[in-house]
Every structure is written in C-alpha cells, then in structure tokens.
C-alpha cells in the first residue's frame, strides 16, 4: 500500500497527563506513582507553552471515577483552548457521549475496544472518526501470534520469534492479538487516530520503540501518536524522523520541568521538522 504524503505534515507535541482521582501522576511502568499536581492547571500551562494538544489518561480505579473524570473535562474545557483527549475506562457510547458533551474533543478507547472493536465504530458513527482515538498498548512478545504478520525478530531472552502483541489493563494483560493487524482493523472500523504506546519502553526514558512506531505508521492511513519511553528531546525528533509518527507524546520530561514544550519545538524545528512554533 502506498503511503499518502502528509499534506502540510506538521508534527504535533502532546504532553500526556496521567490522572488518578483528579490528580496528575506519572508512573514508571505504571508503578511508583508520584503526584505532580492539578491536571487542569498543568494542561493550561502546556497550552500557554505552545503544546499542540493535551491527553489525559485516567487511571482512577475507584467507583466514583465517572464523576471525577467528568469534572476534570468540565473544568478543562473552561481553561484550555487547544484540543484535548480523555482516555481511561470508556466502555460504551454513552461514556463517550458524556465526555464529549462535557467538552472533550476526543475520547481514547483501549481495553473495551480490544474486547469489542465495534465500540470504535459506534463512537465514530455517532460523533465522527476525528474524535475516536484507539489507544493501543503493545509489548514485544514471543511465540506465533498470527500467520499473517511475519515475526519482527528473535526474542532477546526467551528466544524464538517476536511479534508486537496488544496488552490491556495498563500493560499487564496479554491478549494474543497482533498489534499491527489490530491497528489496521480498528482504523477500518473508524478510529481516526492511533495512540501507540510501547509498554516495554514506557517509563524507561530510553526513547520510543521506533520499529514498532514505523511498522504501525506504514500499516494504517490515519495519524499515529508515538508514546512510551521519551527521556530526551532528541527522542521526540527520532519519533517523527525515524518512527514516522504524526505526533509525539511525552509526560515526565515536561511535568518535572526538565524541558519546556517550547524547547521541544525548537529542537524539532532545528531538525527540519515542520511544526507550529511555540510562540505562534
């Protein structure tokens, strides 16, 4: 399949805020969570810094999740004037409707869409593909997953063939589903964008899994957001230039003040990547 040339092809930088019970956290491989503040304040700060979008991933497990999440979306819509996506725990079209009506621009569906991919079609049919993001968590795994997708290499420890496999529940639960086949299927069903997270890299600061990114980018025709593993500004550049990602997502390098979004954009621009300047 020939890959369409991106018209403007302007890259996006997307700070990601992991939210638990209304507060921002960032886990290292989703363990050892550390509080880093109010999500709405942080998102507004990223808006002012020149971020192109913001993603909230709600990892709240408690039963009052629905209310705290809606409250977060309500407040964000009043303070943040760039697009924002909310993900986490969206299981039905009604869940999506509530969040979009409250002011979210996109909803990211993960586990529920892996269990029942038609959910993405239902959301896209009612609200449009542009707001239906498929959040895909992937690990390199051994063993034959699919006859259709060739192995990508040899597993470093277990030996044998390696493929990209979908994991759910924050990267804990293997599904046996081939990530590339899933990405193709879910976009055919109407997902307008793929948020692609390498769970092997998430929290490591070793950089994106560029091979994973490139493989999915080449397989689908919708924008792909690379996620998982950013530790330096050069990792963001690699995600676009080597991974081919349309957008790059990062959390801790921004949250703890190591780098500003403006610095990230300057580095991208210096590398020749077309991107909206931070002060535009």
């Amino acid at each position: 399949m020939s890959r369409p040339a991106a018209g403007g092809g302007n890259a996006r930088i997307i700070p990601c805020l992991d939210v638990d019970a209304g507060r921002v956290v960032k886990g290292v491989n989703f363990v050892d969570l550390a509080d880093a503040g109010d999500p709405v304040e942080l998102a507004s700060r990223y808006d002012q810094q020149g971020a192109d979008e913001v993603v909230f991933l709600d990892i709240t497990a408690s039963s009052d999740r629905r209310e705290t999440t809606l409250d977060l979306v309500y407040r964000t819509a009043e303070e943040v004037f760039i697009p924002f996506t909310i993900g986490g725990g969206i299981r039905t079209v009604d869940d999506a409707r509530r969040l979009l009506r409250a002011g979210a621009d996109k909803v990211a569906v993960n586990t529920a869409a892996v269990n029942r991919p038609e959910l993405v079609a239902e959301i896209a049919d009612e609200f449009g593909s542009q707001c239906a993001v498929a959040s895909v968590d992937v690990r390199r795994a051994g063993g034959p997953l699919s006859a259709a997708t060739p192995p990508i290499g040899t597993h470093p420890t277990a030996g044998g063939d390696v493929r990209f496999e979908i994991f759910t529940h924050g990267g804990r639960t293997p599904t046996g589903i081939d990530a590339v086949e899933y990405a193709i299927r879910i976009t055919e069903l109407g997902a307008g964008e793929i948020l692609l997270t390498s769970m092997d890299r998430d929290g490591t600061r070793d950089g994106f899994d560029l091979e994973l990114t490139r493989t999915v980018v080449e397989a689908v025709r919708v924008p792909v957001i690379a996620s998982g593993g950013v530790g330096t500004l050069d990792h963001l550049v690699e995600g676009v230039l080597e991974g081919g990602a349309d957008a790059v997502l990062a959390a801790s390098i921004f949250h703890f003040g190591e780098h500003t979004v403006a610095e990230a954009k300057a580095r991208m621009a210096a590398a020749g990547i077309p991107i909206r300047p931070a002060d535009a």
Partner: peptide, 10 residues
C-alpha cells in the same frame, strides 16, 4: 494524495 482527515495545526 493527502492524509485524511487533515488533523493538525496549519
């Protein structure tokens, strides 16, 4: 031969 949607800042 462009990606559709155009989903970006321009």
């Amino acid at each position: 031969n462009v990606k559709r949607p155009q989903m970006q800042w321009n």
